[in-house]
């Protein structure tokens, strides 16, 4: 399908951009730093001490997989929120660039359907996010597994969840770019969606602390529509730490994010289909 070709072209475009080169270098440097500087003393399956560049981080003796949980949890949150924040900045101009004069006319003259262009852009950006987060999470679990003998593949699953969350944010950014061809507006829209999605995860607690009135109704209304990105991030962190995760709730959040993304994309295609270039 042409969608895949559009996505592949976007990936080719991204590799030429310094943002992503920088991200790749940064992740690699971080991982190499851990390889060289992190010392984990494991005795009979228990982590006895953790040293980073010679400084003792923790010296309590605990089961190694339990002791590494905070690391996996922190990494998961970094991938989730940090990845979303990075992504909304670094990917904000893919869609505006697609729609730029000279480029969009040429693309629309080709035998590619309009929805395939948007779909391919979305897929390409998501693939980019997946590659980055899997690289970071995978590198971390390989390093920690080699050093401790604890092989925990859950961070990879957490990375996938983080990408689902980013996909939700990017779908809104794509819609914004179709409405207003501006990377800045697209990034701002993504930031707003990230903030709103984080609040939406704590909807129940926030509503409980609000007094009845128009403000509460307004919050209840829009937070009921927003995807619960913070819930997804929390679930990803729990998964990364091999802690139990409510399958029903996780499934619901994933479905909600997926449906929201699909709705935003459908709206973007609706506008794109009727747009003159």
């Amino acid at each position: 399908m042409k969608t895949l070709h559009v996505a592949a072209d976007l990936l080719r475009e991204a590799t030429a951009r310094k943002w992503f080169l920088g991200l790749g270098v940064a992740i690699t440097a971080l991982l190499l730093g851990l390889v060289g500087g992190l010392r984990l003393d494991v005795v009979d399956g228990a982590l006895a001490a953790t040293r980073l560049f010679g400084s003792v981080l923790q010296a309590s003796v605990r089961p190694a997989d339990v002791a590494l949980r905070p690391v996996f949890i922190a990494a998961s949150y970094l991938i989730s929120y940090g990845g979303m924040a990075f992504g909304l900045l670094a990917c904000s101009d893919f869609a505006p660039a697609l729609l730029s004069p000279g480029r969009i006319e040429h693309l629309l003259s080709l035998p590619v359907r309009r929805w395939e262009l948007l779909g391919g852009t979305f897929l390409g950006v998501l693939t980019l996010g997946l590659i980055g987060s899997l690289y970071g999470a995978g590198g971390l679990l390989v390093i920690l597994g080699a050093k401790t003998g604890v092989w925990n593949w859950h961070p990879l699953l957490a990375a996938v969840l983080a990408v689902v969350g980013f996909g939700t944010v990017y779908s809104g950014m794509l819609l914004s770019a179709v409405l207003v061809r501006s990377a800045a507006v697209s990034a701002a829209c993504g930031a707003l969606l990230l903030f709103a999605g984080t609040l939406a995860g704590y909807r129940t607690a926030i509503l409980a602390s609000m007094r009845e009135g128009p403000g509460r109704w307004a919050f209840a209304a829009w937070s009921g529509l927003m995807p619960s990105l913070s819930t997804l991030a929390d679930a990803a962190a729990n998964l990364a730490a091999a802690r139990p995760v409510g399958v029903g709730q996780l499934g619901g959040v994933l479905a909600g994010c997926g449906l929201f993304s699909a709705a935003a994309l459908a709206l973007a295609v609706w506008h794109f289909e009727g747009k003159d270039f």
Binding site: A16, P101, G102, E105, H106, S109, P111
Partner: peptide, 21 residues
Amino acid sequence: DPAVRARVGYLPERLHLPAAW
């Protein structure tokens, strides 16, 4: 119809080309 557009070649007035390619 994409099948029709497949038989058309178009050169726009200001064609945007990817600089890094």
